[in-house]
């Protein structure tokens, strides 16, 4: 049953991702991305990765969508998203073929590799997660602090300062 839901959510996620690519409107694209992200969060939850799932739901499908929507509205480009079909008909036809071929080859390779699955779908306990995060991944936490600092400076440079040129 659980596996059925995983598969269902995955299918829906791929569909939402495809929609994000195909929509002409930027706003609709961003929202499709958010939906895909939310479905991914559901998949992660079903696979037992609860904390990752929470982060995915709140940060990716929440925060990033806000960022995109604000970018779209700040630039008034909801409707003027043009597609490269007119000028490069040949390329547009060839490209998906190449991509699908490459994807099929990759899948073939992956399916032929023997995954030794140890403990499928065992949810990680909170203590194990805490242990992993706080004592094994010190460097990553330091990295997160630094990257948030970097983000702050980026916002200061890119948004706050009036340009004088």
């Amino acid at each position: 049953m659980q596996q059925f839901f995983i598969v269902l959510c995955l299918v829906l996620m791929v569909l939402a991702g495809g929609a994000a690519v195909m929509f002409r409107s930027m706003l609709k694209s961003s929202i499709s991305l958010a939906v895909a992200s939310a479905l991914l969060a559901a998949v992660l939850f079903l696979m037992g990765a609860y904390w990752a799932s929470i982060f995915e739901l709140s940060v990716c499908s929440g925060l990033i969508t806000v960022v995109f929507v604000s970018a779209v509205s700040l630039t008034n480009t909801d409707r003027c998203s043009e597609v490269r079909v007119r000028e490069h008909k040949a390329r547009v036809a060839v490209l998906p073929a190449i991509l699908i071929f490459a994807g099929a080859a990759l899948l073939f390779i992956l399916f032929n590799s023997d995954f030794n699955i140890v403990a499928s779908a065992t949810p990680a306990s909170f203590s194990a997660f805490k242990e992993a995060l706080w004592s094994l991944r010190q460097a990553d936490i330091l990295g997160q602090i630094i990257v948030i600092l970097a983000g702050t400076f980026a916002v200061i440079v890119l948004f706050k300062e009036r340009d004088n040129i």
């Binding site: 460097a139 970097a150 400076f153 980026a154 340009d163």
Partner: peptide, 20 residues
């Protein structure tokens, strides 16, 4: 990877520092 990304983010912003 984390530190690569930090370096990257800081360099994007530095390239755009003058806002030209």
């Amino acid at each position: 990877y984390v530190f690569l990304e930090i370096t990257g983010i800081a360099s994007f912003v530095m390239i755009a520092l003058l806002h030209d």
